[in-house]
Structure formats: C-alpha cells, structure tokens
C-alpha cells in the first residue's frame, strides 16, 4: 500500500474544471514530482490534498485513511506538511518564531529537539534566528518555509515550487537539501516548473497537462523522454 493514494481527483474553481481526474501514488521514502506548465493543476492538486481546496470527486488516502474533507489545520497532526507556493513565511515574526509556529501542534520539549535538526539542515537559519523573517533573502525565506514545514515532523512533505524566483546557485542548494531530507526518511511530493532539477532528484514523476496526467515514469526516464524534453526542458 502506498503512503499517499490519489484517485480520480476532480477540483473546480467555480465553473473552471482545474483538475480533471488525476490519479497517482507516493510510496514511503520516495521523492515524487508533479511537473507541468503554468495552470496545469499542480498546485491545485497539492492544495486539495492539504485540505485548502475542496474536491468535487475522487479520493485521497494517506496511510490508509481517507483525508478528503479534513480541514487544513488538522493535516499536520496526520503527518502531512505543505510548504506553500511563494513561501508565505510570517514576515513580521522572527525566524525562531516562524519555526515555533511550524511546531504549533507539538510540545515545546519536542520542538527543542526538532529545531536543532532543522538548524542542522539549514545552518543559515541558526545565524538569523532572531532576525525578522521579512528581512531574509528569497533563498533564506525558502529555507525557512521548508524548515517551518519540517517542524511538525511530517511523514510526507509537499513542496510547492521551492525554486521559484531563486538564483541558480540557490536552486542547487535547495534541491540538495530536499535530497538530504529524503535520505533522512522524509517522503517528498514536489511540484516544480523547473522540470530538469525536479526530475534529476525524483524517484518517480508525473507530467500534468491542463488538469490531466499525460505521462508518468521514473525521474531519469522522463529526463530522457523526447516529448518531455521538448515541452519542459527546452529541447
């Protein structure tokens, strides 16, 4: 049984049919990526799994339990964390306070341990612990958003466009951190427009086009796939 099983998911924005019957699975320990152009339904899919958007049809099972209709604020306790598009750190709070919010559902004692782990992955955050998050650079804010999501000790972390707006060198850094998080046992569901980076670290990948999955395979296979190369990797 897979950790996450999405089956025939349909999501609407008003009358717009944004996700049209998407099905995929994520196994424990994997990095799975959803790639596709703007508006393909990638973020919508993640937001629906996270309980932010309602689904019209279909099912989502996480560790054997149906989670459609569970409100977003109960997902952390179930073991799912979403690191949202655009980072959405609390800009008027310090780095430390942001991390504390990430561990909102856990006790202070548990958080004290987890914070050390997070600083281990992101040493730069420790240096800036008492700085207000709004003053961090884009890359640091992304690290903070990921660290904050990790504070809930999720079994599955969903990352929505972690490379957005970052310099190439930072993109490399962020992806190597994602890889190391995964090596430490966190299952990753990654949504990316930077398809080549995403495919290079993913175990498996799904290609979305206008709300449907049009291709799936291992990361390395899709990296060599002619259609994928033409459409998403610039030739």
């Amino acid at each position: 049984m897979s950790m996450l099983e999405v089956n025939d998911l349909h999501v609407y924005y008003g009358s717009i049919h944004a996700v049209k019957g998407v099905s995929f699975t994520v196994d424990k320990g994997e990095i799975v990526t959803l790639i596709g152009a703007n508006g393909a339904g990638k973020s919508t899919t993640l937001n629906t799994i996270a309980g932010i958007l309602p689904a019209r049809r279909g099912s989502v099972e996480f560790q054997g339990e149906g989670i459609l209709g569970v409100p977003a604020h109960k997902m952390v306790r179930k073991g799912i964390a979403l690191c949202p598009e655009g980072r959405r750190v609390f800009t008027q709070m310090t780095v430390e306070e942001n991390l504390q919010m990430g561990g909102y559902t856990r006790t202070d004692a548990e958080n004290a341990d987890t914070v050390e782990d997070v600083y281990g992955h992101f040493p730069r955050l420790r240096e800036r612990a008492y700085q207000v998050a709004g003053t961090l650079s884009g890359g640091e804010q992304q690290m903070l958003a990921m660290g904050r999501a990790l504070m809930g000790r999720p079994d599955l972390i969903m990352l929505d466009e972690p490379s957005m707006g970052l310099a190439p060198i930072l993109v490399d850094e962020i992806f190597s951190i994602i890889k190391s998080l995964n090596d430490n046992g966190t299952t990753v569901l990654l949504v990316e427009q930077n398809a080549s980076m995403a495919l290079s670290i993913a175990d498996r990948a799904y290609v979305l086009e206008t709300g449907r999955i049009v291709k799936e395979g291992s990361g390395s296979d899709l990296l060599r796939d002619d259609d994928v190369r033409r459409a998403y990797l610039g030739g």
């Binding site: 604020h73 964390a81 949202p84 504390q100 919010m101 202070d108």
Partner: peptide, 21 residues
Amino acid sequence: KMGKAMRACSEDKGAAQLMGI
C-alpha cells in the same frame, strides 16, 4: 504560543492553518 499564533493569523491565515493553527 497562543499569542504568537494570533500574530501568525493576523499576517497570513492561509499559512497559519498549514501550521495546524
């Protein structure tokens, strides 16, 4: 923690609910 959660909600309710608030 409660007070900080309040500030978090004031700034970004969407992100706050993702924290489990």
